[in-house]
């Protein structure tokens, strides 16, 4: 990982069209300003991680075909209630 020190108001460029600026830093918290092309996803790291984790859980073998059949029956039953 590249590590840089920056002061308030200074920025870092990623390539030529992504800029991350330090707006404010105090009490263990840093406020960032991010300028990036609008098609680029900018997400808090933990949100991206939770989506990735959710996808991995969805792809796990824990859910097998027989269970899906049972879930389908339950859903249909619920629909008729």
């Amino acid at each position: 990982m590249l590590v840089l020190s920056r002061r308030k108001g200074e920025s870092v460029m990623l390539g030529d069209n992504i800029e991350i600026q330090i707006l404010h830093a105090s009490g263990g918290q840093v406020r960032l300003g991010i300028r990036a092309p609008k098609e680029l996803a900018v997400l808090r790291g933990e949100l991206f991680s939770s989506v990735r984790q959710g996808n991995h859980e969805a792809a796990q073998m824990a859910l097998d075909a027989a269970e899906v059949t049972e879930l389908g029956k339950l859903l249909k039953k619920k629909g008729q209630d």
């Binding site: 959710g54 859980e57 969805a58 824990a62 269970e67 899906v68 879930l71």
Partner: peptide, 8 residues
């Protein structure tokens, strides 16, 4: 996407 851990 459906996942099935303890609950669906």
């Amino acid at each position: 996407l459906i996942s099935f851990q303890r609950d669906a």
